[in-house]
Structures are given as structure tokens and as C-alpha cells.
Design a protein around this nucleic acid. Structure first.
Lengths: 198, 198, 198, 198
DNA sequence: CATGAATGAGGATTCATTCAT
DNA sequence: TATGAATGAATCCTCATTCAT
């Protein structure tokens, strides 16, 4: 059964942006790949940027909700953190190309006119960082997370580590870039982890 | 006294890309801003991408050399690490807009044809990560850095933290995003810092 | 009633190339003259050269077919030859400017890359020379054409004479450059034609 | 010993235009090939077209003078004609690429502005056709050339045949495209040359 | 005479967007 | 809703020409 036309368009876009840059991917190609007329795209999206954005944040709210769910009975804080990383990792994996475009298409100093994409994303992103902050807050409550650094900042660094893992560590063996490893490093740092002589 | 023409062009480019995207910034504008003829740009750069790249990596090799210098007498490992972060931070601060473009203009899965910029950068970047790895190796030697994670991976995460600090934490008060904080978090992690035996 | 858009574009091109050289005629002008958008040209032609070529060979195949038609009952060989010259002459008259461009845009020794136009034309041209050769073969059969020179060569010289008539003899009075005169010269040569009474 | 700089430039141009079109050959290349500075070209030629023209007509006047020389003792008319064809053939052989450019760069209907090259050539060319006409006149005097067609027209056709031989017959075996063959065809035509039954 | 760094006018081509059907 | 033919604004790059040295 054929998907909804809007869905087909977003999927085609996601697929094409995987191998082509923003300005190298034409609406003709997307329309062709989605098997719809070129004009049809404009029935569902206001313009090319809007298409990118909607394709990127598709499912984003659902993910944020998932992050906010209460942890299952008996799951320790580290377990929660690991599950959080998995959720985030899964969401961003397929969307990496789209977010690469969004992040590149503007910077904080950009004039508002051109920063449309980035502006919209920054607004949404807050939902995610807040959710992660809330999770870290639980760790603070159980004294498993240090309290001398704001949760929001810790959340950003955690997200940054996940980005590094996804963007820069692709060439390393899977064992070296496990999510458990990220959590461990995030929690214990790179310093001599356990006082040997203890 | 007027700078060298090539320098003027690179500076003008850096300035303009700060507030405009790659495709919104025309060579006309750059030439105008640099106060040179349009054709002059092509005397020094093979094309627009080459201009971006050269402007971005200007001084990169010098920075890598600086990273490799032996630490001053009596400077502890943490001191070295802090100094390393400062060096990196200074280098990337002004070049952020340029690197945003380079990173966005291609991805590892991209066809080689379009990944020219990124390819060139990946080649150079290695010099930097190796230098940081080498520094971390000294920490391993003094048992200040854990040995169970490859230095290369730790280096990537450290660089990732600096990126997060520079890109995502701009709205936080300076005190919260100090380089010392980055080093502390990198070394000790987000877990309860206080020694258990307390 | 307005012509087909593709036709309008080709006619506008033919008209403009009549008074301007290849590189002096811009696609802007052609689009303007044809009263279509600039982009429309690229819906029908792959590029500027393709436009020239298609405009030039428009109707070429039809002419070749016409050349191959059996001569009417009772038409002598010279009559056939004259009719052939007329057909050729009519076809090339309006297209002279276009062919001037095609012939100039490459030469046999040119690298294949740049000889696109000329290559395409050489391929087509063969159809025409073969048709003329076939006609001359009939003359050989009736002993009206000498057999000691290959038909293909004679065909080339005949076509060359038509070109001379069209390109170099324009300043001479029409009577001196009649097609009948071409045929006569081609058949009898410039030597003392035939000692009439002798 | 190094040639005169002007000579070197013209030779380099001739060489380069052999494999490149007018607009594909840059003055940079020519200067490089001639081993002179780019500005030096403008010391000897007013512009690019002038360079082409002067390179093409270099030696043209000398050739015209040669054509006008009295035929050697005892050389028959056909001998003179053959020698004439040889002279013309030699002159144009190396210059073909240059003349292809000149002939393509304008037409009789062209606005004077753009027809500069062609205009200049048409003026010079007259010297050559007049010389050939004069030679044909000798044939008329000896009744070897028909008198019912103006010499000027016959001269044009003869030159046209030489062009055909040089441009269109290159793929034929040398024996079939001999200058003697051209003269024979010019004199006797393509009709049954000698009434066999005579 | 000779040079070559510097210039900037000029044009083919692409592609997001519209709108008549 | 859906389409895709038509549009034309927008820009990179080339290269003939100049002129300070």
C-alpha cells in the first residue's frame, strides 16, 4: 500500500540528502523519487527548507515524550542513562544528513532572514535538552551525578559526546564506541577511573 | 599599510561568511570587501571552495606544531591539557563559520566528487587529533589518564567537548563554560566527583 | 496562431545567427526574440550548441529522402541533376549562417571533446553525399558521367561548387550564377566545351 | 638563433589554433608557447583578431606575386594551371585552421562591427582571385578555356574545388585527390570525357 | 621594448517556485 | 488535490586588455 504522499516526499528527501548536499539535491529529483508531481511538494511544504525541517523533526516530539517517561521499576540511574542514549542515538542515526544541513544553514550570528532553519531548530531542540536535563536531575537526587555543574550544561556535553561518537568515531571498531562506553566516560571521565590501591 | 592581497581576500571571506551562508555569499561581495578585482581571487585560489578551505586552515599547521611542543618545566599534566584546550579554542574561535561550512559540505558517505572540501579537511584533521592523542599519552604514562580507552578516542571526545562548549553553550554564563571546567569534566566525569572515602 | 515553442526558438536562433556570430549571440537574446523564458530553451535543447545543430539539420532528413526519390518519368539525367542542385540549394540557403558556425566550430584534427558539433554533422552529412553519389551513379550507367573518378569524389566537388556559388558568387549577376550554369560547368568543365560544328 | 618575437608569436598562434577553436585558445597560452610576455603581443598586434589575421596572410602577397609571374618558357597552359594549383595548395595547407576561423567569424550580412576580420580578408582575397582570373585569361586566349563564362567565376570555382579537395576529401586515397585530377576535372568536367567512339 | 599582475565585463546554465489546467 | 511546463533571477568563472614597473 502506498504511503501518504507527504510521507513519501519526506522519505525521498531523507534518502537523497544522504548522498547529496542541500544545493545539489533538486526538488525535481525529490519529486521524481517520491513519484509525485513537483507542484505537489508545495501542497505540503512551504518551501525547500521547510521540507528539510519537517523531515528532520518527524518523530522528534514522540522521542522527547519517550525520554520523559518514568523509568521502569528497578532500573538504576545508569540504566536510565543508557536507555536515554539509545533513544537519542536511534533517532539521530537516520537523520544525520538532515541535521547536518540544518546545523550548517545558519549560525547564531546570522541575520534572522537566513537563519530560519536554525531558528526553528533551536526552538525545538530545547525540548530535548530539557528532557535530558530532567533525567540527569534524577542522578543528582541520588548523588550519582555531581551537583556542582548545572544539569543543562551536563546535558549538552552528553549530547555532544553522542554526536562525536556518531560523527567522528565511525572508523573505530564498534566495541570501542559502544553507548555503554559513552556513559562510562561521561560518568567517570578520562582520569584514572578507579583508585587502584583502594 | 595594505596587507598582502591573498590575506585581504581570506579575511574578507572570513568576515562575510560570519553572517552569510556559503551560497548566499558571492565572490563579487568578497572581492568588493577585499577591495580587489573579481578575477584576482582566481589568481590565488582555484575556486570558491578552495578559498574557504585555505582561509579555514590558515595557521592550522602552526597550531599543530604548537600542540606538539614539549610542556614547560614543571607544568603538570592537567596544566598541559588546559593549555592544549586554550590553543585549540583560540584557533577555532574565529574560524567557526568557515568550519561550519566545511563540515556541512559533505559527509563520509558522499560521493567523492562532492566531498572535496570535507576530504581535504579530513586529511588535515588527522594531524590535530594525533597531536592531542600524543598529549593524552603523557597522561597515561603518569597514570593520570585511564589506559583502558584508546587515546585516539579520548582525543575525539575532548575535541567534541570543546565543540559543544563553543557551539552549544554560548548562552551560558562564562563562568560555567570555562576551559578549566571542560578539563575537569573530561578528567573526572559527571559522576559524583568527591572521593568515595570521604 | 503561435508556433510550437521549440519551433519558435529555432527560428529565432536562425534569424539572430544571420547577423551575429556564435559568441555574440546570447541565449537571452534568443529567448527574447522567441518570446519564451530563458529556461525554456533548456527544456528542448541540451545546450547552446545543440540548439544550433538542431536548427541547422531541421528538415535535413526530409531533404535526403527527397534526393533519393525516383526521377519523374521522362526526366533526363541532366534534369535530375538540376533538380538535385535545386533541392540542395533551397535547403542550404536559409541555413547558411548556421552551417557556417557548425563548420567553424571544429576541424578534423580537433580533439574529440571540442568537436561535438562537427562530429554530429559529419555523421549526418554522409547521408547527403551518399544520396548525391547514387544520383551520379545513374549518370555513369547511362555513360553521361565519367567512370574513371569515384562517384563519391564527384559528389563532393559538385557540393563544393554549390557552396562556391552560394558563398563566393553572391556579387555576380544572377544570370551568371544560375544552377544550370553550375550543372553545365560540372558536366563539361571549363575547357573549350564542345567544338560545336567540328 | 631565436626568431623575431613577432614571428614567434604568429607561429605559436598557428600551432595552437590547429587544435583549438578561436575562443578556446587564450592569449596566455599563445604567449606561453611563444615564450614572450602576454603584454608583448600587444606591441605587435592590435588585438586577438589582428593576430589571427596577420598570421593567416603572412606570405599572402608573396604568393600572389608568384602567381603573377610569367610562366616559364615552353610550359603549356595546363602546366601553368597545375603549377598555380600547387602554389595555392601549399599556401593554404598550413593556414587552413586560421582561415577556418576567419571565414567563420562573419558573413557578408554581418554588421560591420563584427565583420572586421572577414572584411579585411575579402579585401585581400581579391588580389588572389584576380591573379587566377588573369591566368585563366591566357587559357581563353589560346582557346583552351571556354569564353562564355567570365574568368572571375571560373576562378572562384577552381578555388572552390581546391577547398573541397583540402577540406572534404581528406579521407580519400591520395591518388584520387591529386592536383592533376583537380585540373582535369576542372577542364573536362564530370561528363564522359572522351567520346569513346570517336 | 618587455612584462605579468590585476582587472571586471560578460554569459551559459541551474533550479526553486508558480499557475493554468 | 495534483500536475509539470514555463519562468527568470541569480552567480561562478573566463579571459582579453591594460598599465605600472
Amino acid at each position: 500500500m502506498k504511503l501518504d504522499k507527504k510521507q513519501r516526499i519526506m522519505q525521498a528527501a531523507e534518502q537523497l540528502f544522504r548522498t547529496r548536499r542541500f544545493h545539489e539535491t533538486t526538488l525535481d529529483e525529490i519529486a521524481k523519487a517520491a513519484d509525485v508531481g513537483k507542484g505537489t511538494i508545495y501542497l505540503y511544504f512551504s518551501d525547500k527548507e521547510d521540507l528539510i525541517f519537517q523531515a528532520a523533526v518527524e518523530g522528534f516530539d514522540a522521542m522527547c515524550l519517550e525520554l520523559r517517561q518514568a523509568p521502569p521499576e528497578g532500573e538504576g540511574f545508569r540504566g536510565t542513562l543508557l536507555r536515554t542514549c539509545e533513544t537519542l542515538s536511534v533517532f539521530f542515526r537516520a537523520r544525520r544528513p538532515l541535521f547536518r544541513i540544518i546545523l550548517s544553514e545558519g549560525d547564531r550570528d546570522m541575520e534572522s532572514a537566513s537563519g530560519g532553519l536554525q531558528q526553528r531548530w533551536r526552538g525545538r531542540r530545547r525540548t530535548m535538552t530539557d528532557a535530558v536535563s530532567a533525567i540527569l536531575a534524577r542522578g543528582v537526587a541520588t548523588t550519582e551525578i555531581r551537583a556542582d555543574v548545572p544539569n543543562g550544561i551536563l546535558a549538552e556535553y552528553l549530547l555532544g559526546m553522542l554526536r562525536t561518537r556518531s560523527w567522528e568515531l565511525e572508523d573505530w571498531p564498534a566495541a570501542q564506541r559502544s553507548l555503554a562506553g559513552v556513559v562510562d566516560l561521561f560518568m567517570n571521565g578520562a582520569g584514572r577511573s578507579a583508585p587502584a590501591g583502594k
